[in-house]
Write a protein that binds this DNA or RNA. Structure first.
Length: 415
RNA sequence: GUGGCUAUGGUGAAGCGGUUAACACAAACGACUGUGACUCGUUCAUACGUGGGUUCGAAUCCCACUAGCCACCCCA
């Protein structure tokens, strides 16, 4: 019996991986325009890091983490998200000493023990970015603009940017109480889940999918009405800067985040094309996180993009590569020559294929066609004697002779 | 953790108690003796997720298990 992979852990095969490479390359290219540098942190961290950052009472920490005790009796966890680890590294290496404003991006696998479904897997991948040390709203606007820029570069303009403000430790508790007393008056109309969440996460009732809850929360107080003057001003300024650079957004005062560390600006990039997984990217400000983790009192803001979800949105696009040249050879001598020319051309930067098994010319031409090679060079005994060979343009169907040396060939196929 | 749905070859699938288990695509080789894409031919599941049962007979009915998908919870 063959062994299968683990549920929710997927292979990314050739044919699909090109799309991933394109997504990753686009992220690197765009993020570096904004001054971001990559940071790579380990997959395994101390469990405590996530308890303290994400929040003990969140679903991620309560039931979704891949946690275990290692051989040294340490409680460790395979990271369920990226921000906590990046901030841990920032603090550990005292990066604020070099520059409190760190602009970092990362990409890699994250792990959450959830039931897999469309756009959600147990090992999934995120591309994230974080900025520390700036509380100015310009950076909120810039991070959001960079995120939408990235999607635009991929040719995806469908996801819409939704923003909200969650306030700060001063104003959020006031709002939370106001909301709770409102919900209490409607408690019988709320679904079972929202009743259960009433104490732990009352805000969730606002974006509950149950029709009853949606109806019941129609007149609920809005966070935006309860923002303290500083938070209100920050939110207004963020919107102003977004408008200044033409980044379109919608305000979604019902948007709630699942991680405890968020403050002030929060946002999601949502799409209707992914079944029940509407968020392709999400993030927000976390002004208290760095100090909560024992670091300096610096603000922060960041986001994470779900790579599988982006790949799903890019499902129809073809990212397959095609070779520049296929060399068809007839006979042992020609085969050796083809091998030699192939090697020389590869050193000159051309992608070249040959047939390894000395099949018929017909068969080799079919293979060239299958690879979608741009050109095919045909070498037999005559060509060897002549020192030139027909080079066929596979798209146009025309062919003309070229000298049998790599420099001459590369001029034609890469020119 | 909780629901619902589905399991036939590399893929998409026909099949509805007795068929050599259709068909299409993909793949390999050939018809064109040194040239792809079109056309044509040949080959390609002793096998219908696994294990039990019902039956003279099961891919087809029943049960269990497993897997996958979708949804809930939650989230990227």
């Amino acid at each position: 019996m063959a062994i299968n992979g683990i549920k929710g852990f997927n292979d990314i095969l050739p044919g699909d991986v090109e799309k991933w490479q394109h997504i990753e390359a686009t992220a690197r290219r765009v993020f570096e325009l904004y001054g971001f540098s990559e940071i790579r942190t380990p997959i395994l961290e101390k469990t405590e890091l996530f308890c303290r950052s994400i929040g003990d009472a969140t679903d991620i920490v309560e039931k979704e983490m891949y946690s275990f005790v290692d051989k040294g009796e340490n409680k460790v966890t395979m990271r369920p998200e990226g921000t906590a680890a990046v901030m841990r590294a920032f603090i550990e290496h005292k990066m604020q000493a070099l520059d409190p404003v760190a602009r970092l991006y990362y990409m890699g696998p994250m792990f959450r023990y959830e039931r897999p479904q469309k756009g959600r897997y147990r090992q999934f991948h995120q591309i994230g970015a974080e900025v520390t040390g700036v509380s100015a709203p310009t950076v909120d606007a810039q991070v959001l603009t960079m995120l939408t820029h990235f999607f635009a570069e991929l040719g995806l303009d469908e996801p819409s940017l939704q923003i909200n403000s969650l306030g700060c430790p001063k104003c959020r508790p006031v709002y939370r109480e106001a909301l709770k007393s409102f919900l209490l008056s409607k408690i019988e109309l709320l679904c079972e889940d929202c009743n259960r969440r009433y104490e732990t996460n009352p805000l969730r009732a606002l974006d509950c999918k149950s029709p009853g809850c949606q109806e019941a929360t129609k007149g609920a107080p809005a966070m935006l009405e309860y923002l303290c003057p500083e938070c209100a001003e920050h939110f207004e300024a963020t919107k102003k800067y977004l408008e200044l650079v033409g980044t379109t957004y919608q305000i979604n005062e019902r948007m709630v985040r699942g991680l405890d560390y968020y403050t002030r600006t929060t946002f999601e990039l949502v799409t209707g094309l992914l079944g029940s997984q509407s968020a392709v990217a999400a993030g927000g400000r976390y002004d208290g996180l760095i100090s909560d983790l024992g670091g300096p009192a610096l603000p922060g803001i960041g986001f994470a993009i779900g790579v599988e979800r982006v790949a799903l949105l890019l499902a129809e696009k073809d990212f397959s590569r095609r070779p520049d040249l296929f060399i068809a050879a007839l006979g042992d001598e020609a085969h050796a020559e083809a091998f030699k020319i192939m090697s020389a051309l590869q050193r000159l930067g051309a992608a070249v294929e040959i047939d390894y098994e000395g099949k018929s010319l017909k068969s080799q031409m079919r293979r060239a066609d299958k690879f979608k090679s741009r050109f095919t060079l045909i070498i037999g005994g005559d060509e060897l004697a002549r020192g030139t060979a027909p080079l066929k343009d596979m798209d146009g169907g025309t062919q003309s002779d070229v000298a049998l040396n790599a420099d001459a060939i590369v001029k034609v196929i890469k020119g």
